[in-house]
């Protein structure tokens, strides 16, 4: 096997792996982009250094969020001052909260329990303590 053959095999294998990973991630990104029609909107407002959540019926919660199991939710995320990032690590949700913009993210909780919410973009003095709690309750 000459130099060229070995190198082309190497390049070919890498292209194959990249194409596989690329198509798969493109497909998942498409799924993530497609918000279900019946999703309930939760307005998420970040500011130094706490979270405010507003439900569709107008009730507001600060630092905690109560959701129902099995119901799709769409988050409309924005910020009042500097950049923050809305992150629920257990539900693989992370979206920046940028002042002047509304970013979206969605999920369907399929498990009851208490989960952490945290800020994932450095936002100053108390960034490390900008946390909240997500409570998912049975839909009955």
């Amino acid at each position: 096997m000459g130099h060229d053959t070995a190198e082309w095999v190497y390049v070919g294998v890498i292209c194959g792996i990249l194409a596989w990973v690329g198509v798969d991630s493109w497909y998942i990104e498409k799924l993530v982009d497609d918000v279900p029609k019946d999703a309930e909107v939760i307005k998420v407002t970040a500011q130094q250094w706490f979270w405010t959540f507003e439900h569709q019926d107008g009730t507001k919660e600060v630092g905690q969020l109560h959701l129902k199991k099995g119901q799709p939710y769409k988050f409309e995320i924005t910020s009042k001052d500097v950049n923050h990032a809305f992150n629920m690590p257990d539900w693989v949700i992370m979206q920046d909260a940028v002042p002047g913009r509304i970013n979206k993210a969605w999920f369907v909780p399929d498990q009851v329990g208490e989960f952490p919410i945290q800020c994932r973009e450095y936002c100053g003095l108390l960034h490390y303590n900008m946390r909240g709690t997500l409570y998912i309750e049975d839909n009955k």
């Binding site: 390049v11 292209c15 990249l18 690329g22 498409k30 990032a85 979206q95 920046d96 970013n103 979206k104």
Partner: peptide, 28 residues
Amino acid sequence: ATGMSFTEKTVESLCSFLQVLAAFLIRQ
């Protein structure tokens, strides 16, 4: 995570994959 559109994400992913390919060539 800053709220890019789907098209932006697709284009940037494609460029990043090309980038990885070029980086792998260095492994020679």
